[in-house]
C-alpha cells in the first residue's frame, strides 16, 4: 500500500467517524420534539421507569409493614399513602410546606417525622431513612421511592386518613415504679392487667401460625431471628427490642407483653397490632416468647 492509499483509507474512516458522530449528536440532542423525543429524552424515560422499579422493590421490603402492600395503610399503625391529597399538594399545604410537593415527599422520607403528626390516630413514628440522618438509604434510593409513590398519582383515591379512628385509651405510665418490670408495664390496668394466654406456650401449631404472622408483620424491624436487626431496624431510634434477650423478656410479664403488642409503644416505631384480632396477637406472642425461651 502506498502512502497515498493509506491516507485515503484513513480519510474514508475519518469521514465515517464524522457521520457516526453526526448521527449520534442529532439523535441525542437536536431532533427532540414532544412527539418525537430525542434519544436522550427517551433514555431519561427509561431511567425514570427503572427508578420506579427500584422504588417498588424498596417499598416492598421496607414500607409495607406499616403502610400496607399497596399503600392502603394499616389501621391505627400508619396512614394510607395511596391517597389523592398526598400527590396534589393539599397535604403539603396543610403542613405549611411551601416548596414543591415532590420535595415534601422526599424530605418526609429522608428525615422522617421527629414528632408523629397524629399520635392519637397512628402510633408508628415515621423514621428517618436517609443515611445523612442515620437511616439506611442513599439519596438515589429515596428518589426512587418518591418516583414509585408518585406513580400512584393517576389513580389514587380520595381517602380521609386523619379522622377515622378515635384515640385509643392508653394506660398512663405515671404510676409508681415496679421493680423487675419494664417501665411500659407499670400500673397496667384493665382490660390488660392479669390477662392469660388462651394457648399453651409450646403448642406446635400455634407456634407455626405465630411464626407466619411474625415473618409477615414483625420481621422487618425485629429481624428474622428476633434479634432486633431487621432490614428496617437500622433507621429506627430507639431500636426495636431484641426478643432473644432473656433478661429483657423476663421484665415483660405475659399480660404486659400482650398489651405492648396490642397497643404499641408510645414514642417508638412499635405500632399497635390489635387490628389483627386478639387471637393473632396471642399467636404471635406465643411465638415471640419461644425465641428467648422465657415462659
Amino acid at each position: 500500500m502506498s502512502t497515498r492509499q493509506k491516507l485515503l483509507v484513513a480519510l474514508i474512516f475519518f469521514v465515517l467517524l464524522c457521520v457516526v458522530s453526526g448521527i449520534v449528536a442529532l439523535s441525542d440532542w437536536m431532533m427532540g420534539t414532544p412527539d418525537n423525543p430525542s434519544a436522550r429524552e427517551q433514555r431519561a424515560r427509561v431511567y425514570a421507569g427503572r427508578a420506579i422499579e427500584t422504588g417498588a422493590e424498596l417499598y416492598g421490603r421496607l414500607c409495607v409493614s406499616c403502610h400496607g402492600a399497596r399503600g392502603e395503610g394499616v389501621a391505627s399503625v400508619a396512614p394510607a399513602l395511596r391517597r389523592q391529597d398526598l400527590f396534589d399538594g393539599r397535604r403539603a399545604r396543610e403542613l405549611r410546606w411551601t416548596e414543591s410537593n415532590e420535595a415534601f415527599l422526599q424530605n418526609t422520607l429522608r428525615a422522617g417525622r421527629p414528632i408523629p403528626s397524629r399520635a392519637d390516630v397512628y402510633s408508628a413514628r415515621m423514621p428517618a431513612w436517609d443515611q445523612e440522618f442515620g437511616g439506611t438509604l442513599s439519596a438515589s434510593q429515596i428518589e426512587a421511592l418518591v418516583a414509585f409513590l408518585t406513580n400512584w398519582r393517576a389513580d389514587a383515591p380520595e381517602v380521609n386518613a386523619w379522622g377515622i379512628v378515635p384515640a385509643p385509651a392508653r394506660t398512663p405510665a405515671t404510676t409508681a415504679p415496679q421493680a423487675g418490670v419494664a417501665r411500659v408495664c407499670w400500673g397496667l390496668s384493665a382490660p390488660y392487667a392479669g390477662k392469660q394466654s388462651p394457648y399453651r406456650l409450646d403448642d406446635k401449631t400455634i407456634l407455626a401460625q405465630g411464626k407466619q404472622i411474625y415473618d409477615d408483620k414483625c420481621a422487618a424491624c425485629h429481624g428474622a431471628t428476633g434479634k432486633g436487626d431487621g432490614p428496617a431496624a437500622a433507621a429506627l431510634n430507639p431500636k426495636p427490642a431484641n426478643l432473644t434477650d432473656k433478661n429483657f423478656m423476663r421484665t415483660l410479664p405475659i399480660d404486659c407483653h400482650f398489651f405492648v403488642i396490642a397497643e404499641g409503644v408510645r414514642g417508638t416505631a412499635m405500632p399497635p397490632w390489635k387490628s389483627l384480632g386478639e387471637e393473632a396477637v396471642w399467636k404471635v406472642l406465643v411465638y415471640t416468647r419461644s425465641l428467648s425461651g422465657v415462659p
Binding site: K6, L7, V9, A10, L11, I12, F13, F14, L16, L17, V20
Partner: peptide, 10 residues
C-alpha cells in the same frame, strides 16, 4: 498509523 487510528476509532 494514521490509517489504523482512523479505523480503530471508527
Amino acid at each position: 498509523e494514521v490509517m489504523w487510528i482512523a479505523f480503530a476509532l471508527c
